[in-house]
Amino acid sequence: MAFYIVKRIFLLIPLLLGITFISFVILKAIPGDPALIMAGERASAEDIEKIRRHLGSDRGVIGQYAGYILMLLKGELGRSYFTQKRVMDDILEKLPNTALLAMAAMLIAIPIGLLAGFISGLKNGSTVDRVISGFAITGLSVPVFWIGLILIYLISLQLKLLPPSGTGLRFLLLPAITLAMPAIASITRITRTMVIETSSMPFIKTALAKGIRPFRLYSVHIMRNIIIPVVTVIGIDFGSYLSGAVLTETIFGWNGIGRFTFEGIMKRDYPVVMGCIITATVIFIMINLFVDILYHFLDPRVRLEKDSRL
């Protein structure tokens, strides 16, 4: 078990190297001096000189890439063109807000998605199932930013129930619902599929034949079997929630890294955009690593399978 975790963490190294390489290539594609880009347009001559030394502009591409990695390792993502603040400082300041928003969205999405998926799967083929499935596929097809705008219009502007934009607990509900919408849809869909698949398995028939109470059947027998695919889907979709956060935070004026990314894009503040994307990707990878490790606790079958391959 511990060995597996250590192995997985070591496997992250080539992946992170690759990610920094891609971001380095993108940074190189921007017209202009990379040192100037990292330092920001109004940086002092010393700063630029320091970064140039780090990047090793005179050392050829590989040397420059090595310099770039060294800078990243020190947590140095460059400075904003406009505010001159270190991008890392801004990200650290805004990250808790984004985490809060993402958690709130998950707290909404997971129970609703599981419940809807369960009902839909158990009543496979019924009208209820069709309605839920219809909602689920619609939820996957409607643009997140448009849902956000419609919610602002209906709930904040017309009904005046909740404030339209800002950061803080009072403002949390609307963006969280918006961000949760596609998550509810995909959790519902995978839960439904898995419930249908599991219900037809022989061990369910056995349990039914032995007179199991329905609650125990759903909560223990079926739940245990669907939890892995559901957790996987949440992990994989996390990447799209991060992209969704860019749109949602922008619309609701939520002071997180999503809106920070958007402002970076609008102002072509390259260090900000690249810094945010590297951060988001690292978070995404960590979440998926966590999901993989979680499997070991959730499903003994995975443990055996993976351990035998080691």
């Binding site: 993108i26 799209s240 955009v273 990707t281």
Partner: peptide, 23 residues
């Protein structure tokens, strides 16, 4: 496949944003 894995390690829309910004 290493290349493919690498690209799929990014949240795809965010990577597309990063590429679009520099083009």
């Amino acid at each position: 496949m290493a290349m493919v894995d690498l690209l799929m390690a990014f949240p795809s829309l965010l990577l597309a944003m990063a590429i679009s910004v520099v083009l």
